[in-house]
Amino acid sequence: MTIPVTVLAVDDEAAIRRLLHASLDRAGYRVVEAGTARETIAALQIDKPDLVLLDLGLPDRDGLELIPLIKQAGAAIIVISARDATQQKVAALDLGADDYVSKPFDSEEVLARIRVALRHRLAGETDVPRLRRGPVEIDLAARMVRRDGEEVHLTPREYGFLAELAKAPGRVVTHAQLLRAVWGPGHETDVEYLRVAARSIRRKLEADPSRPRLFRNEPGVGYRLMGDE
């Protein structure tokens, strides 16, 4: 990277900002801090961050309201949220946040999420023709899935499910997003379709379906294709 990537860390707690600052600094990012929604909006215009780490609990405004503004400014968004604030996470993701990390976070996890989000933002959706996870290969160009080099037959819905995850590798895709993309509008709440598809895919692709390695379910939020690191 010739030009350092700028990350805006938004949290009303100075201690947490310092913490994020230190680990982002070490990873080679240029770091800007903001403690309020006001400061965030100002920083969006002045510092033009590539990515915003956004705590939703801000003193002057609901953090969710900032998501469209940040999207408009062209930055990726990773929401930092309390572990049990499931509905808030889902709302943020559906508004366009790229991913989330739960408090208390592991800085390694934060950095990994940042890498995934930035990669995705630079590469774009269509530019990921082929993925490999262990013995499984997902070929988006050929619309084909192989296990140990042999084609595995998936139903169109199963393939669609897996392809949606593969288009955003390492990022969470919400239940509603998956259902809308694969089953079509009007099915956003039919979570059991996802469970059936996930179970069937695992039976076909996983060595041990009760210890899945290909993708995991984030309770109440969505599915995530596991990383390749």
Partner: peptide
């Protein structure tokens, strides 16, 4: 409560992770 259908193997895998 936000109740939804959950697959036990999903739930156990997430918890173990």
């Amino acid at each position: 409560l936000a109740v939804e259908p959950v697959d036990l193997s999903d739930a156990v895998a997430s918890a173990l992770q």
